[in-house]
Simulated scan of single mutants.
Amino acid sequence: MASIYDFTATSLSGEEVPLKRFEGQVLLIVNTASACGFTPQYRGLEALHRAYADRGFAVLGFPCNQFGAQEPGTAEEIGAFCAGKYDVTFPLFAKIDVNGADAHPLYRFLKGEKTGLLGSAIKWNFTKFLVDRTGHVVSRHAPTTTPEALKKDIEALL
């Protein structure tokens, strides 16, 4: 059975990162955007990351420009925005597609594991996937689900 540890992603700085690096951690994987109505969720995502990092939790952010062209920036611009406006310290990855023929393999896997209300396609920015310590997808959450609303689910997996 596949897990997220079977995938590799490129960091915002251009480093190839095997997701096996996060083995044994609870993860919240999120497709992000810097110019979206949900962008303030960066604050809540960072709060979760800081609150639970010492217990084996991490948020992984995957910028995506597929929804309303709300992530048009370069890697450098995305990093500067996230650090400057939201003091983001959780890992951010290079901009990817989450839907369509060019969807990142990780997102093909995530969507196959947990479909949404209207099927497998990601509908908007800040869709969240909660992954357990064994690399298996536990749940999928709509963009309207705030990071704070996931605390109990995260704590149950820690």
Rank of each mutant, 00 (worst) to 15 (best):
M1R: 13
A2E: 13
A2T: 14
S3G: 15
F7N: 11
F7Q: 09
F7I: 08
A9Y: 01
A9G: 00
A9H: 03
L12F: 05
V17C: 02
P18N: 09
R21S: 14
F22E: 06
F22V: 05
G24K: 05
G24T: 01
Q25F: 01
L27V: 03
I29F: 04
N31Q: 06
T32P: 02
T32V: 13
C36G: 00
G37V: 03
F38Q: 04
T39V: 09
T39L: 09
R43M: 11
R43L: 14
G44V: 05
G44K: 08
E46F: 03
A47I: 03
A47P: 00
H49Q: 09
H49A: 02
R50L: 15
R50M: 12
Y52V: 02
G56N: 04
G56V: 02
V59Q: 04
V59N: 06
G61E: 00
F62W: 04
F62S: 05
F62I: 06
P63Y: 13
G68Y: 10
Q70G: 02
Q70W: 09
T74H: 05
T74G: 03
T74I: 08
T74F: 12
T74Q: 04
A75W: 02
I78Q: 00
A80W: 01
A80G: 03
C82M: 07
D87L: 13
V88H: 06
P91A: 03
P91C: 03
L92G: 04
F93W: 11
A94N: 05
K95R: 13
I96F: 03
D97K: 09
G100A: 07
A101W: 03
R108Q: 15
R108C: 11
F109M: 08
L110A: 12
G112Y: 08
G112H: 08
E113Y: 11
K114H: 12
T115C: 10
T115I: 13
T115F: 10
G116Q: 12
L118M: 13
L118H: 12
G119C: 11
G119I: 10
A121I: 01
A121R: 15
W124H: 05
K128E: 04
K128C: 04
V131G: 05
V131T: 07
V131P: 01
V131K: 02
R133P: 12
R133L: 05
R133G: 12
T134F: 00
H136W: 00
H136S: 10
S139C: 00
R140A: 09
T145D: 14
T146Y: 07
T146S: 15
E148L: 05
E148P: 07
A149M: 15
A149Y: 12
L150E: 09
L150A: 11
L150W: 09
K152Q: 15
K152R: 14
D153A: 15
I154M: 06
I154W: 08
E155M: 02
A156G: 12
